[in-house]
Design a protein around this nucleic acid. Sequence first.
RNA 1: GAUCCCAUCGUCUAGCCUGGUCAGGACACAAGGUUUUCAUCCUUGCAACACGGGUUCAAAUCCCGUUGGGAUCGCCA
Length: 501
Amino acid sequence: MSEEVRCRIAPSPTGEPHVGTAYIALFNLCYARKYKGKFILRIEDTDQSRSTRESEESIYQSLSWLGLNWDEGPDIGGPFGPYRQSERLSIYHEQIKKLLDSGRAYRCFCTPQELDTLRKYQEQNKRPPGYFGKDSKCRHLNETQIKERLDAKIPHVIRMAVPMEEGKISFYDHIRKEEITRRLNEVDDQIILKSDGFPTYHLASVVDDHLMKITHVIRGEEWINSTYKHVLLYSAFGWEPPKFFHLGLLRNPDSNRTKISKRKNPVSLRWFRAAGYLPQALINFLGLMGYSRYRDDMSDEEKKSCEIFSLQTMINDFNETRISPTGPAFDFAKLEDLNFSYLSQFTDDGFYQYLNDRQTYLKTYFGAYNRLFIERYLRPEKDVSFWSSFLFKHALQYKRDDFEKAECDNAKQGAEILKKFKKLLSREIETLHSADEIKDFINKVCGETGATSKQLHMLLRVAVTGSSESLPLYQSMALLGLYRCLVRCDEAASFLGSIRE
RNA sequence: GAUCCCAUCGUCUAGCCUGGUCAGGACACAAGGUUUUCAUCCUUGCAACACGGGUUCAAAUCCCGUUGGGAUCGCCA
């Protein structure tokens, strides 16, 4: 008798709901639905300082918007709850006691400072970093020593005790279709319970996946190097591990191809919605990443239409053996094309409804702050979408005429100024939190860039908004996000650099 | 730096497991056509097996190495 397939998406409610979460959720949902199993949403809010209820709420909204509906979760309950990790603390404590008793975990009283020193020492001596081997002081504490420290109420964490014998640890990855192996003595004694009594991801996910009877863990490949630890934990508990699938990471579309990040690209699902992307287009697009429905044995008709598909279609013929391990670049042009093709299928009513939904969402996404300065610029011929379009374009189309309003000696000088500004900004970027601070910063560094105030402001205006006609510069920069401003300075500089005088 | 992962057009990918087709499709781009401009739409074009060894009659496909890229090394997930 085969057991029921159970997959999960387990986001942590910190910050904006991430497009990568939707990507992973999509494949989990497809797998679960294909095998008539369950798709579970679990909230991993074990980081007390960063988790918020607002963020959790926007995860629900964003996934629902995409049609990625879950069968069990904190909001709707289910037979294996609670589904919010902060409400499962007693469960983790109960489980960790077993590990402590069996010697598969131990208390560690090292302070963050001590660990810092250890790290530096390891770095200097070219030793692999981590709390293990000879460096794991607390592992060798005897009963009396532990009791002393406990009685003295010294804060401590609990670490897993990785077996110290020679050997290897490995697990089977169902996407690579291969064993992935590592030497045991390279795996460090990971903290599994923090000093605040909350578990870390490693413990919580293993315990929950087991108790919630998760059968298939489909997640990003960033987890591969932690999976050894998870496998070790399963074996310490005497539990059967689930099957592992590690998907390639979505990449920034630039030449570096690092994993997709808000510093370079929009990644918030709320952003995609406010920008006017349709849920069916985004789902379709994500379903094309690392996966293809195209097969050589399809009829010509099927081949032609196989790249445009609904979530239901993807589920119906989903085949996990066709997932590729490569990390795909996020290509906005393709998304744009898909979005248009869905948009053009709309009836008039549907289209107006879409416009309405978009305006409404724009309003809630940016709130009163946005309206405050947009309304001053309202003109019949240039409405909100005209003034805010710079926020919703992935790449701007620069025009030479706009930059000429900066009255630089030549394009090359403009490029140099932007490059210098970018360098200065990236140095202080973390210290700037508001439009006012950005204003002060720009005025402060203006001289260092070799530009007049007027030159720098106009160059920045065009670089950031794509036009010499825009909303107030400082607010625009704050709204777009300074990291994306850096990217735009680069793009504008290279545009200017390519101009022949 | 150490470890692990990955590698077909600019991008997403099919083909790889089970060696033998002009390496196929989509997006982007370019050209032409339709159209009241633009866009849509139609046609055509451009464009890839990272490199080097091996195995074989035959390698994108199997093996090894090199190079390149990425991820991980947190009391974050």
